[in-house]
Design a protein around this nucleic acid. Structure first.
Lengths: 341, 341
DNA sequence: CACCGCGCTGCAATCGATTGCAGACACGGG
DNA sequence: CCCGTGTCTGCAATCGATTGCAGCGCGGTG
């Protein structure tokens, strides 16, 4: 009645070696592409055949113990339920899987203490590297990680220390796309519902808005929303429309703010699109199902995740850490923008 | 110019033992709660002090190599970008972290071959267990996993083999909540936009709809949508309203189908809520921002993920696999339902 | 013919923690 | 005074793969 452990019958390198009639070290070298060249072709063939026949799978624990590599990387996100992050994780998972790596995920709930706990759990698991998408990492966690010899790549965020590689969306270009689109449609009186100045994206997009308006010789009004949510967006857009009744278009720093702007426009008795044009940012799921469907800037989050993963793997492979990579966004033109009335 | 490896200075058990003046085996026993009792209190104190002082973190690779446990579990989902799954993953991650486990994620793109590859990558990584949320696992993958000695828990899905534990939402109860709510509001002519009969949720919710209608002594019309998307929902709801012009309410098998029903209702010149009531299923993000906000059944995906994780850990700890766990859904009443005109 | 070199394979140490077994020591009873 | 018993600690094997080093045999060269 002893518990049966089917796992015991796993074949190990010794089984393969015995079956091929060689020593385990020879088998190891034959199976490892990097050392294969020192083994004779005939022996390689024998070993490969035996490995295939027995269904040999190397034990990553034993390998890792010896080589100090786990072929595992961790990704840390603030909140998986925020639709921003799943594409990031998915992109990273896909790219890593293709390189033979597995992905551990950690969710921090935007809590500093929790973040530290999650990161150290990952480090304790001996991940080869870390992809960090958390907005704030207090207490110089980055230098500490560097001291521990952990390779880090940031995504959707940059560090004060520019030597840490990062993959981010190009906010300046994205806002430029929105502004250009509106100007092309004939809009001149354009306002901006900005994100909170506490967050770097809030600041960056507001600055980009002013710059691009100036480039067109225009002057744009800006009102800051307290948070990247619909209600603050409604409030900010209402204020914007109160102060500048002649506005014909609103560039929102975020899709949720744009939906807030929808409400504000409707409450002033005008229509979104035909009356006041509105653009968002991020192309969240379902914004194409709104009425009208939202014109917005799509940030290639999935590609950013994949790019961050590839960068990390390259560095682990000995490549030089690259500078910050800025991924080009794309404008999704839908029903919420139209020529001014 | 040799590369500096700060990782080399990691303290290991030998360092702790030396610093505490005991043998490594004694240190090991002192640090392991399960074996601690065989070591004298004084020695335990010495070892713990040394471990704390040196910042000792056990090497999970060495431990795992010896004990054949990695304290790692894998979760396999079809598509992380489907808003259903992030809460599942997040719930699992949270519950596992609390138990000292880490979570590896795999994304299958609903592709059978890819699924097999992802699962075997996870098994090769020697995960202690697997949480599977993939709808279809062809080719008796489940029995194969069992043979390999991998512990599996299903989530959001049941197996033909009832001995495999599963955590699912209670579709029957959920549809019951929607029907009861509508009947209570005074509706009698209620139709159902069903999901595809290929998928178990499609079948289950349609059956539940008929049962609950019958319980109220009513007879409900059902039209099947070809896929859980908005367009098929629009088509099915249009057909439903054509065939039964007297309908005052629609129960959709899914939020996207409900949004399709919105369009169908509007196209017949009526209003959602005041004219025809509509309910959804899942409470996806942003359906509360629709116009009108969607009344829908919330499935506790996060709790389901957490429950699956806890179940898995319990089984790994030697507990008996439980029967299928059905989690109770909850009705979110919003603007899309109202008394019939 | 002897020696050298080279290509290939085997030996054994190693990574770091766990654990069965046995030794050391103290204490109490016969 | 000796021995049994029980408590604690140390020894060494072990998990499975990697890798520096040594050895073997063969062929070529002086």
């Amino acid at each position: 009645m002893a518990t049966n452990r089917p796992g015991n019958d796993r074949v190990n390198l010794a089984d393969v070696a015995k079956s091929a009639g060689v020593h385990v070290s020879t088998a190891s070298r034959a199976l490892n592409p990097a050392t294969r060249s020192v083994v004779s072709d005939a022996t390689v063939a024998k070993v490969m055949e035996a490995a295939g026949r027995l269904g040999y799978r190397p034990n990553p624990l034993a390998r890792g113990l010896r080589t100090d590599r786990t072929f595992t990387v961790g990704i840390v996100v603030p909140d998986l339920e925020n639709p921003l992050f799943p594409p990031l994780v998915r992109g990273a998972e896909g790219a890593l899987g293709a390189e033979g790596y597995s992905l551990l995920v950690g969710n921090t709930d935007n809590d500093r203490e929790h973040t530290a706990a999650v990161v150290s759990a990952l480090v304790d698991q001996r991940v080869d590297g870390l992809i960090l998408a958390t907005a704030e990492l207090g207490d110089g966690m980055l230098p500490a990680l560097r001291n521990e010899g952990v390779t880090v790549v940031l995504v959707n965020r940059e560090a004060d220390d520019p030597s840490i590689p990062a993959v981010v969306g190009d906010d300046d270009a994205g806002v430029g796309l929105a502004v250009d689109h509106l100007v092309e449609l004939g809009h001149r009186a354009i306002g901006h519902v900005a994100g909170p100045h506490r967050l770097s994206t809030g600041v960056a997009r507001a600055a980009a808005f002013r710059d691009h308006m100036k480039r067109h010789g225009l002057d744009g009004a800006v009102v800051e929303a307290g948070w990247f949510q619909m209600e603050p967006g409604l409030a900010a857009a209402t204020e914007l429309l109160d102060r500048h009744p002649g506005l014909t278009a609103i560039v929102a720093a975020n899709d949720l703010l744009a939906l807030g702007a929808y409400r504000a426009v409707i409450e002033t008795g005008r229509k979104v699109g035909a009356g006041v044009s509105v653009t968002g940012y991020n192309d969240m799921p379902f914004v194409d199902l709104m009425m009208p469907p939202l014109t917005t800037v799509r940030v290639p989050y999935r590609e950013m995740g994949a790019q961050a993963a590839r960068t990390l793997v390259a560095i682990l492979g000995g490549a030089e850490p690259p500078d910050t990579v800025r991924m080009a966004p794309e404008l999704c033109v839908r029903g919420s923008t139209a020529p001014p009335p």
